[in-house]
Amino acid sequence: MEPVKLKGNREGLILKLDLKTSFPILCENIMAKIKSADAFLGDNREIIINTGNHVLDSDQIEELTRVLQSLDLGIKKIISEAKEEREVEKPINSQQKIELEQSLSEGSTLMVRKNLRSGQSVFHEGTVIVMGDINPGAEVVAGGHIFVLGHLRGVAHAGARGDKDAVVYANKLQPTQLRIANLITRAPDDESVAPNEPELARIKDGMVIIEKYSLYKEE
């Protein structure tokens, strides 16, 4: 395959990179590709980088940013289709918004097989399953549903793009804050009863309700 491909979809322009090519050669190819497609780019100066089955390290991200900057381009986000879950360290340049996604399709599911601790966050367009706990100070933001097969004590935002049908399930649902679509809720200040069975939060009649999962019925 070509080392660099430029495609467009409704999200914007995507630069697909084949990381089997050595990185310096890849950068040269990017330069050539962008220059030949400059008319195609027009006013759209923010592009999405797709790294296929590979994940860029922070040095590569930095280099890539530099190359694109010389072409007057910015990175909208970096996505990869890597099957295994990896963490991308945020690079020093805070301008870059980098999200790790498993794939492009909206319905995809991200599996997080660890505890999310304070300061850690997961962003994903589709549904997120956490096999572990989400501690206070950690957050999960999902376009779809959030399932926590552990203790949810941090912040969870399901349906972050506005999907009011999104739900949050947790074996122990005790969030600092719970958000579904554009609604934000928190527990009352004087209440700290630990739930003893799995619960499900969803929007019903314009309000976030929490119910025992065992009592949940399809509507």
């Binding site: 805070s94 850690q120 100070g137 950690a138």
Partner: peptide
């Protein structure tokens, strides 16, 4: 604040780049 009308908090970010 929960207790005082005239008291406010601007919290720090927890998950963002600290050089921001």
């Amino acid at each position: 604040d929960k207790r005082f009308e005239g008291l406010f908090l601007l919290p720090a970010a927890q998950t963002k780049d600290k050089n921001a």
